[in-house]
Design a protein around this nucleic acid. Structure first.
Ligand code: ZN
Length: 509
DNA sequence: TGTGCCGGGTA
DNA sequence: TACCCGGCACA
């Protein structure tokens, strides 16, 4: 396997997107292609979920003619799923050079498709059926199957790799396979791999092996009939993994910390200070790539372009908050040590996360923030890639930019759906090298982008240092709830709990 | 004073 | 179970 080669390479770039409230990730090599002009090979991988809300997880890896991950001269690579899938097919690497930054003028140029368009269907919180329109065709679930944990492990859609034959030009097959392998190795090469949730881990491995087998057989399908993926994830929440997953459920004692409740696994490597963070705001509207540097700008963008509101009207009900995400881009150059770090090191095995059933009555509501930190010694001017990405709805794309020189492996991604109805995506962080932090912010968070930062906190459920409890009532969360967000006049947009004067389900603390 | 939501009530 | 609302705590 060429993982070593990959790992030793100088840099690579990948775009990831995730858009599912569900779990039970399954892998799917969606596209492996080669660009004659750029000389790069690109592979993208979708994670299709057995759930009714399939998501995608998209990567692109540039490979040079030798099949090694290609140096990426540019800065961060920001790719929405659509962008990756479409543009990759056309100009693979060229599109990957897109960076997170874009001025507003440019942004508005790029997003006219939605001007005057109605908002996200229904003008209210999207419902699942509406969300379907935003899913990618490859992930549709026409059978309506899905949603039950029993199905999560079965890579139905992913049991077949749709690899159009014309894409596999004979001369490029190897490189394409290489790209696919590189991609999949990102998710399998890490020693954590053995402890990641089995379905996820297995799928990546399957993708990998399928990629390779295809190089000789030319057949891009493989049989998964013998896959005995565990149908029911075993309950975790004991041992080390609880560090990660309990973070979100520690309750009041970390009420303020919940703002910075990073859904991450502790990174033993001392992290970089977050002193050169730049916060960018990305429009999450479908097909809209707008990235602005100010929240007001992106709010105005969403309001005017997508929500069809008057630009100067101040009747902002906060709805635009749902349609952009904030990213923190670390402009530091973080190179020391990473490239020499061994990609493998012992790690405590972790139990797979649980995948409780999502509440059916509420639209999927996902708030996810990811932080990637990587380094490219080649691009001292390149920003690096520390991005916080947030989306409020499961179907919205979480795109992640990766650019790194160090061996990068994302051992696993898993989606955790606690009882509060929020979907939580988490990655196990490798013990060395880049880390991915997924955090679950709340609305207050969203409104105070500079406060939460990327401080990696270690929460222990047993931590005795709480905010003192006064009385039996839970201290009120800081997040704006439906009532405040939508106002009394849009009461029908509230979540049911809010309508019933119960604890808000949509904006949990 | 507005907001969040507990607790209790009704259908 | 779905829904409503009085009333209280909190900001
Ligand atoms: Zn609510």
């Amino acid at each position: 396997m060429n993982s070593e080669r990959l790992l030793n390479n100088k840099s690579w770039a990948a775009g990831l997107s995730y858009c599912s409230p569900a779990s039970g990730l399954t892998g799917d090599i969606k596209h492996v292609g080669h660009s004659e002009s750029s000389g790069s090979t690109v592979a993208s991988v979708d994670i299709t979920q057995g759930d009714s809300s399939p998501g995608s997880f998209l990567c692109a890896v540039l490979l040079d003619d030798n099949g090694a991950p290609k140096e990426h001269p540019g800065e961060g690579v920001a790719q929405s799923r659509n962008e990756v899938t479409n543009e990759l097919k056309e100009k693979h690497s060229a599109s990957l050079n897109k960076i997170c930054e874009m001025d507003e003028r440019d942004a508005q140029k790029r997003s006219p498709a939605h001007r005057g368009n109605s908002r996200i269907p229904g003008d209210t919180m999207p419902k699942d059926s509406e969300v379907a329109g935003q899913r990618t065709e490859s992930q549709s679930d026409p059978s309506g199957l899905g949603g039950s944990p029993e199905e999560w492990g079965h890579p139905r859609a992913s049991s077949h790799i749709p690899m159009p034959g014309h894409r596999i030009a004979a001369g490029h097959a190897d490189r394409e396979v290489m790209a696919a392998a590189a991609l999949t190795s990102l998710f399998t090469s890490h020693p954590l791999g053995h402890s990641v949730p089995e379905p996820t881990n297995r799928v990546w491995k399957e993708s990998l092996s399928a990629s390779y087998s295809s190089s000789t057989s030319g057949n891009w399908s493989w049989d998964t009939s013998d896959q005995s993926v565990p149908s029911t994830p075993s309950p975790p929440l004991n041992g080390d993994i609880s560090k990660g997953f309990l973070l979100s459920s520690q309750g009041d004692d970390i009420a303020e910390d919940s703002e910075t409740t990073h859904f991450l696994f502790e990174d033993p490597i001392p992290r970089k200070r977050k002193n050169s963070m730049k916060v960018m705001f990305k429009c999450l509207w479908k097909n809209c790539e707008t990235v602005l540097s100010s929240s007001s700008g992106i709010q105005r963008h969403v309001r005017t372009l997508h929500l069809g509101r008057n630009r100067d009207s101040d009747d902002s009900d906060g709805e635009e908050d749902f349609y952009y995400s904030e990213m923190e881009v670390n402009v530091d150059t973080l190179s020391e040590g990473l490239s020499s770090l061994a990609p493998t090191s012992p790690i405590t095995p972790m139990a797979p996360p649980i995948f409780p059933d999502p509440p059916a009555s509420e639209p999927a509501h996902v708030t996810v923030q990811a932080v990637l930190r990587f380094t490219s010694p080649l691009s001292q001017s390149a920003p690096s890639a520390l991005c916080h990405i947030r989306t409020d709805h499961a179907y919205q794309i979480l795109f992640v930019i990766i650019q790194a020189s160090a061996p990068v492996s994302i051992p696993a991604a898993s989606v955790f759906r606690p009882s509060d109805g929020e979907t939580r995506l988490s990655w196990q962080s490798p013990p060395v090298g880049p880390s991915i932090q997924i955090r679950v912010p709340n609305v207050a968070d969203r409104r105070q982008p500079f406060q939460h930062a990327t401080v990696t906190k270690s929460h222990t459920p047993a931590t005795p240092t709480h905010k003192p409890f006064t009385g039996s009532r839970k201290p009120r969360g800081e997040a704006k709830k439906c009532r405040k967000v939508y106002g009394m006049e849009k009461r029908d947009m509230w979540c049911t709990a809010c309508r019933w004067k119960k604890a808000c389900q949509r904006f949990t603390d």
